[in-house]
């Protein structure tokens, strides 16, 4: 058991602490709001502990590929980025997709397209999952509280090194800048990193295939592994859903607001519950389908024009023909009252 301690910390500090506690050793990164403090916070830790290393690279492309190289060598390496940086990161994440590298990145979503706005959004869902030129076999966590940010960042390293799929902690500037009393709690041991190549191996590792069939076989195997992994890693929260007639679906920080909205709505005697996917990929499909059986309306609430809605629609089985409405506010925060209003 790890020791549990309550501290007054920002989301940025919590992420850095989670990386230290996960026994990560190398961070490669390029400054971008609202993720910069993860880099500077990590660098501060490097001053205190000489076993920790960092490099501020020339761009996010280099940040991603230096991470890939360090992973190959067997170091728990990671990066953090945001917005246009998440776009540049796709080149290296694509290599990690192809070669099954335990690539961990914290994505601090900001408004897009382009340089957009710098603090908040939920518009990098598609990019986090499907930003590469392949099938989007990535593990993507969406924490809704600072404590969950800690737990899921710890878990990201463990799951990445266990299952070897690129892993994203998808958060945003609001959550990262939030400062509050938090209990840093994580049950479980750290997974040990293992090198792909070393003086004890003689491997020739490729990401280019001569024959189409070879690549398809490789992808089918990857998909099998991904589906197998889904059985253990898929996470969600069902909040006050017992015999509810209407269901809110929200993720990340909006999920936290939706939780409060459900409390208020139920206090008013309304039959509204919350389904909050914690893993956006793999998506908690079975649980969602089970849950919506008794529901007559889904209300999607998100700070995007429908990136979560599309994940929900893809996951719903055909027989679950259910009315879907939504509150879509791209790159804008959503208050509890606005969600309550939706059920007037």
């Amino acid at each position: 058991m790890e020791k549990v301690n309550k501290q007054f910390l920002t989301g940025h500090e919590v992420v850095v602490q989670a990386c230290v506690d996960a026994e990560a050793t190398h961070m490669f990164g390029y400054p971008i709001t609202p993720g910069t403090e993860i880099l500077s916070g990590w660098i501060k830790k490097c001053q205190e502990d000489k076993k920790l290393h960092f490099l501020q690279t020339e761009d996010e492309i280099a940040a991603g590929f230096t991470v890939c190289g360090a992973l190959m060598a067997g170091s728990k390496a990671f990066t953090a980025t945001a917005g246009p940086g998440t776009v540049l990161m796709q080149d290296a994440m694509g290599m990690a997709d192809g070669m099954r590298l335990p690539f961990v990145t914290i994505i601090a979503q900001r408004g897009g397209p382009s340089s957009g706005t710098v603090i908040y959004s939920q518009q990098e869902v598609n990019l986090a999952i499907h930003g590469g030129n392949g099938e989007g076999l990535r593990l993507v966590f969406s924490p809704s509280t600072v404590e969950e940010l800690y737990r899921l960042t710890r878990k990201a390293f463990n799951d990445a090194w266990t299952y070897r799929f690129p892993t994203v902690v998808l958060t945003d500037g609001y959550l990262l800048k939030t400062k509050q009393d938090v209990t840093l709690d994580f049950a479980g041991e750290n997974v040990e990193p293992k090198p792909l190549v070393s003086e004890h191996t003689q491997k020739n590792i490729r990401n280019i295939y001569t024959f189409e069939q070879e690549l398809m076989d490789e992808l089918e195997n990857q998909k099998k592994d991904f589906d197998e992994m889904a059985k253990t890693v898929t996470e969600f929260e069902s909040y006050k859903v017992e015999s509810c007639e209407e269901l809110i679906i929200a993720h990340g920080i909006v999920g936290a607001a939706a939780r409060d909205a459900v409390d208020e709505l139920q206090a008013q005697g309304k039959s509204v519950g919350l389904f909050r996917p914690i893993t956006l990929s793999p998506f908690p499909k079975d649980e969602l389908n089970k849950l919506v059986k008794g529901v007559n309306k889904i209300m999607i609430v998100e700070s995007s024009m429908g990136q979560l809605r599309d994940l929900v629609k893809q996951s719903l089985e055909v027989e679950n023909k259910i009315k879907i409405e939504g509150l879509y506010k791209p790159a804008v925060g959503i208050e509890v009252e606005e969600i309550v209003e939706l059920f007037k």
């Binding site: 190398h26 490669f28 490099l55 690279t57 492309i61 280099a62 590929f65 230096t66 991470v67 890939c68 190289g69 360090a70 992973l71 190959m72 060598a73 390496a77 080149d91 290296a92 694509g94 290599m95 070669m99 792909l196 190549v197 070393s198 191996t201 003689q202 491997k203 020739n204 590792i205 490729r206 990401n207 280019i208």
Partner: peptide, 17 residues
């Protein structure tokens, strides 16, 4: 030991390694 990387990215990868 050999591994392929991406076009233009081998130097950054080996810096990380």
């Amino acid at each position: 030991n050999t591994f392929q990387t991406h076009h233009g990215r081998v130097t950054a990868t080996m810096v990380g390694f």
